Amino acid sequence: MRIDIEDLRVAYSGRTVVAGARLIAAEGEITGLVGPNGSGKSTLLRTVYRHVKPSAGRVLLAGQDIGRMAPAESARHVAALPQERGADFELTVREVVVMGRTPYKRAFAGEDAGDRDIVARALADVGMADQAGRRFTALSGGERQRVLLARAFAQDPDVLVLDEPTNHLDVRHQVELLALLRAQRRTTLVSLHDLNAAAAVCDRLHVLHAGSVIASGPPREVLTPDLMAEAFGVRAAVVDHPLTGDPLIAFDHRTPAGADNSAVPSGSPAH
């Protein structure tokens, strides 16, 4: 399913957080939101999974205004992994993942064979099948992150909305998660702080700055030295990754952002 975000505006206490954003997440593609802290990425994602109601504009899911859908209907189409993880669940790992099946169940209905298969597959996908009986509260931050992602997978959605899904994960599990997202080929809207991860996994990027989308397109077209200077206030070079050929951003960690924000030409070494 395709997502279209049209002229979206969100304001809190009179302060505009998202200012007329327009963007798309094409069917079957991974679409990334990148930008500095406070640029509006999380707020925009919250409008897609209906945690926040926009002040203006709308979110369309396959041409339908998601705000007009019944909550259970939108939950069957869209699953979210927000940054705010909620309370510590006094449940087992498996019980947390089973919660993803809620949009498909009538009140007090139990699991069926289909639910059990979906839950087992979701746990296996995130590498937590052997931890199904553990208490969620006993897990590390990275393990909890993978369980909550499994819950989103168990929801069997058409669209995944993921807000910083690699937070708390070590390098191996970051790589595995991003590879899993690519293999699934669901329509995915994801915010990422790691620009090199975004360049590697995303088909399309939208760059947010001060609540507005200032650049959109394939990573190679969007992630330029000029963009690094404008949006992030850093000096960087963009080269080809020696292993994958993806754009690789090399940041200048020696020059303070305020001292010299001039761009380095693409392909040139950072000084």
Rank of each mutant, 00 (worst) to 15 (best):
147 V>D: 05
196 N>Q: 13
185 R>P: 13
115 D>G: 11
58 R>H: 07
139 L>R: 00
90 E>V: 02
98 V>Y: 01
136 F>P: 03
119 V>Y: 01
175 V>W: 01
183 A>Y: 10
154 A>D: 02
181 L>Y: 09
215 A>G: 05
63 G>S: 11
50 R>F: 06
137 T>R: 14
113 A>G: 12
36 P>A: 15
62 A>Q: 07
254 R>W: 14
101 R>P: 04
145 Q>A: 11
87 A>W: 07
30 I>F: 03
109 A>G: 15
21 A>K: 10
247 P>W: 01
35 G>S: 02
207 V>M: 08
18 V>Y: 01
122 A>P: 01
13 S>W: 14
183 A>G: 13
259 A>K: 14
34 V>G: 04
219 P>Q: 05
239 V>W: 05
23 L>S: 04
14 G>R: 05
127 G>H: 06
168 H>Y: 10
65 D>Q: 07
259 A>C: 12
239 V>Q: 02
21 A>V: 08
246 D>E: 14
173 H>R: 10
167 N>R: 10
216 S>M: 07
24 I>W: 02
185 R>T: 10
176 E>H: 03
96 V>M: 13
113 A>E: 12
216 S>A: 09
148 L>Q: 08
259 A>H: 13
141 G>E: 10
253 H>A: 15
68 R>K: 13
190 V>I: 14
213 V>R: 02
79 A>L: 05
173 H>Y: 12
125 D>S: 13
163 D>V: 02
143 E>I: 07
111 E>S: 15
248 L>F: 09
52 V>D: 05
208 L>S: 06
83 Q>K: 02
252 D>F: 09
3 I>W: 01
151 R>S: 04
211 G>V: 08
44 L>A: 15
57 G>A: 12
1 M>F: 11
243 L>P: 13
122 A>F: 01
237 A>V: 07
204 R>F: 10
79 A>C: 09
11 A>C: 09
215 A>Y: 01
145 Q>H: 12
130 D>V: 00
194 D>H: 00
76 R>W: 02
10 V>K: 05
131 Q>V: 00
104 Y>C: 11
182 R>E: 13
191 S>G: 14
29 E>Y: 12
8 L>W: 00
244 T>Y: 08
259 A>F: 14
51 H>I: 08
127 G>P: 07
108 F>L: 08
95 E>R: 04
153 F>S: 05
218 P>L: 08
40 G>K: 03
93 V>H: 00
27 E>D: 15
122 A>G: 10
104 Y>F: 15
161 V>K: 03
